[in-house]
């Protein structure tokens, strides 16, 4: 055989052996960076604790709460009906979402609401999932800290507050009754990093919705 052929065989075999060591990519679809950036700048993904409380009380069938904290924290306290998907388990070592979670998160018509102690980790999860073309994802503004402040220990508004504040306060007291039965109060160690509280008017439906 011609010498050139030996050279070519060695060349193509080397290329083939090289290909053996390529990491297996996962081919989950991704949205373009521009679109992701646009979506990240859009605050409509945030829902307030009041909206979440209302959905839970109404036992909205399209509500799907995801607790993004560690399983220890999830075990000690979480919202009723929430599922635990810790951030570490959601993604693999290179930041790609594990395919098994897609089945949970990608259900037509479900409103998926992420929450953590504050809303930082939940928002990270939101970005990861949105990047993978998942839809109808929301983040509970302020996380469980705000939940504790607003729903579990509502502050009575000052006398000069507008009527809406009192209506909200009444709702929260009702919600508090619903969630804790008026007896148990949440442990203070859950309330870690403070997030500026955003008071929004109580709305009937979660923004966006389905």
């Amino acid at each position: 055989m011609n010498k050139t052929y030996y050279f070519l065989i060695i060349l193509i075999l080397t290329l083939g052996i090289g290909a053996l060591f390529f990491p297996e990519k996962s081919y989950i679809k991704e949205i373009s960076p521009e679109l992701l950036f646009y979506k990240m700048n859009n605050p409509s993904r945030f829902v307030t604790t009041d909206q979440v409380a209302k959905l839970i009380i109404e036992s909205d069938p399209t509500l799907f709460l995801i607790d993004t904290r560690s399983s220890d924290q999830y075990g000690s306290f979480s919202l009723p009906g929430a599922m635990n998907i810790p951030l570490d388990e959601l993604v693999d070592s290179i930041g790609i979402i594990c395919p098994k979670w897609i089945d949970y998160l990608d259900i037509e018509g479900m409103k998926v609401i992420f929450f953590s102690n504050s809303d930082v980790i939940a928002d990270q999860v939101w970005v990861i999932c949105t990047r993978h073309e998942l839809d109808n994802l929301y983040v509970m503004r302020g996380g469980l800290n705000t939940w504790a402040e607003t729903i579990l220990m509502p502050q009575k508004p000052s006398e000069y507050s507008p009527d809406e504040e009192f209506a909200l306060y009444d709702f929260r007291r009702g919600a508090c009754q619903y969630f804790v039965g008026g007896s148990i109060s949440i442990k203070s160690d859950v309330v870690a990093d403070q997030v500026p509280r955003v008071r929004r008017k109580k709305k009937t439906v979660v923004a966006g919705g389905c």
Partner: peptide
């Protein structure tokens, strides 16, 4: 199997076939 492994096996099979048909 992985993409790379299939490509490698295909190359090995093809080269063997070339030598055989010659």
């Amino acid at each position: 199997i992985s993409r790379g492994l299939f490509a490698f096996l295909f190359i090995v099979a093809t080269i063997s076939a070339f030598i055989l048909v010659s």
